[in-house]
Design a protein around this nucleic acid. Sequence first.
DNA 1: ATATAGTGTGTATTTTTTACACTAAGTAAT
DNA 2: ATTACTTAGTGTAAAAAATACACACTATAT
Lengths: 229, 229
Amino acid sequence: MEQILPHLDSVFSIDCVLFGFDGKELKILLIERNEEPFKDWWALPGNIVGPDESLDQSASRILYELTGLRGIYMEQYYAFGDPHRHPQGRVITLAYYALIRLGGDKELRPISTYAKRANWLPISDLPKLAFDHQKIYDKGLEKIKRRIKHQPIAFELLPEKFTLTQLQHVYELVLGKKLDKRNFRKKIVSFGVLKELDEKQKGVSYRAATLYRFDKRKYAKLFGKEISF
Amino acid sequence: MEQILPHLDSVFSIDCVLFGFDGKELKILLIERNEEPFKDWWALPGNIVGPDESLDQSASRILYELTGLRGIYMEQYYAFGDPHRHPQGRVITLAYYALIRLGGDKELRPISTYAKRANWLPISDLPKLAFDHQKIYDKGLEKIKRRIKHQPIAFELLPEKFTLTQLQHVYELVLGKKLDKRNFRKKIVSFGVLKELDEKQKGVSYRAATLYRFDKRKYAKLFGKEISF
DNA sequence: ATATAGTGTGTATTTTTTACACTAAGTAAT
DNA sequence: ATTACTTAGTGTAAAAAATACACACTATAT
C-alpha cells in the first residue's frame, strides 16, 4: 500500500454492486484483487469506462464480463470522487447496482482477469473492502431499500416462477423487517403485476405453493407510477 | 460548431441545475455562453472539477462562484457521460441540483467569467440548451419532484419566514398540480417541522397571513425518516 | 395414521386520505 | 364609516388504505 505506484491521469470507472439472492440470503459479488493497490483485498467488481462507450453500455459490458449475464436491470446511483479514494490518482467511479437471481437455471461465470477469484458473499458477513467500496456498497443498499418500496424491482432477484412466500422473503431481507403474510399478499396482488400460474412448486416436502410470474406488460404500464410499501 | 476544436483529455465536470423561486414562478439559472462550442447558447452553469476537490466541495465552489451563495442544500443526482455529449472530447458531467430562494434579502451575484451573462429563466419557457443540458435539466426536475414528496426540501425555495400559502404554492409548482388548501395545511403541520411565529406577513393589501419558520431541530430528527405527499 | 411444515385465507379496527364551503380579517376605495 | 375586495383560516363526514390477528388446509415423510 505504501509503495510507490504509477500516477494515472484522470479517469472514470464503474463499480457494480451486484445483489444476488439464492433463495435464502442476500449476497453481493466480490472479487479478490490480484494486483496492487489493495492486493489480496476483497473489492467490488468494476472497470474503466472505455473511450467510446456510453455509461450504461459500459456498465452492461462490465456486468457481462464479470458474470456472463445480459439483460439485467441496472441503474447508476451515485458518483464517488473523493480526490484520495484511489492511491494512484484521481479516479471518479460511477456506482451501478443490479439485482440478480442466483443458482437455479443459468450458472454465472464470474471470470475476471484481474482478480484471483470472484465470490458471492452474504451481506450479513462482509469482509473489509478495498478503496471506498464499503461506502459504495452502503449507499447501494440504501438505494435499493428505498427503491424496492416504490418500484417493482424485487422480481429481479427471483427466478422466473416464484412463490409469494419467496417474494415476501426478498422484501423482508431488503427492508430488514418482518412483514405480515396476509397483508403482504393483499398488497402485492393489488399492484396487478403478478400472474398466477397453473403450476405448483416442486420438490418440497410440504404442501406446494402456487407459482407466480411477473407480468411484464402490466409492469410496463405501472412503471413510473408510484407504488408504495 | 463545425470548426475544429482542440481535443481534451478525459475530464469531469459538474453542472448545476439551480432551481429558484421568486414567489411566483420556478426558475432555473442559465448562462449565455461566450465561447465555442455552443457560443451564444444558453447552458446550465457548470465547471471542471479541480484536481484536489471532493465532488461536493467542487459543487459548492461552483455554486458560490456562480451565485455568491453558500450553505445551500445541494445534491448530486446523476452522471451524464454519453461519449459524444461534448464535441471536444470525453467529458463526464455530474449533475447537482440546488434549491434557492430568489429576491428578498440577499441579492445573487451570478458572475461567471466564461459567460456573457447569467439569468434566471422560468421553467415554463426555456430556450434550447447547449450540449445535453435539456436532458440534465429534465432529470433534475424529475428528481426534485420525487424528492419533495418524501423529504422536506421545499423550504429551501422560500425565505426564512413564509406563509403556508407560499409553501403550498411551491409544492403545487414542483408537483405540477393543485392541492387542497385544508388538506395541505393539515398534512404539512402534522409533519411537525414548522414553527408558527408571532408575526404576520407585511405589505399585502389584504388580510396578512401568519408567518412560519422551518424548525431545524425537528427537521434533523425527521431527516431520514419517510414522509409522504 | 399420524406428525410436520408451510400454504392460503377474512374481518374488524384504526389510520389516512379525500372532498368540500363558509366566516374572519385586513386593506382600499368611496 | 360603509362597502367592496381579497386572501386567511378552519372542521367534518365519507372513503380508502393500513394494520392486527389465527386457524384450517394440503402435501409429504415416516
